[in-house]
Amino acid sequence: MLLIHCPYCKEKLPELEFEYAGQAHIARPLNPAEQSDAEWRDYLFIRSNVRGDHAEQWRHTHGCGRYFNALRNTVSDKFIATYEIEQPRPTGSEEGEKSNEQLES
């Protein structure tokens, strides 16, 4: 069972208590009326599809109930970091391609 560290409960707890909640650090525009159709479309639908470290939101639904941010590698499924919802993405880790080991010759 995958254990996820909740930054509020400050404990590693079973994944069954959590729910995924989409890409992180996408703030709702403060004035949607001023957004062009293209800008609003991007806000609604355009998301990164990184093979590597992905900044995303999770919710500790069956626990403290709080939303928090996580940095998770989409290839290994490893959680690199979890941090409170208003915190910025931790530095020292960049989104980028991670080569598929099997294709190396």
């Binding site: 909640a21 703030a27 709702r28 939101q57 919710r59 639904t61 109930g65 709080r66 939303y67 919802i85």
Partner: peptide
């Protein structure tokens, strides 16, 4: 309720 909490907590 989840949708409401999501907006309330993150936005």
């Amino acid at each position: 309720l989840t949708m409401m909490e999501h907006f309330l907590q993150t936005e």
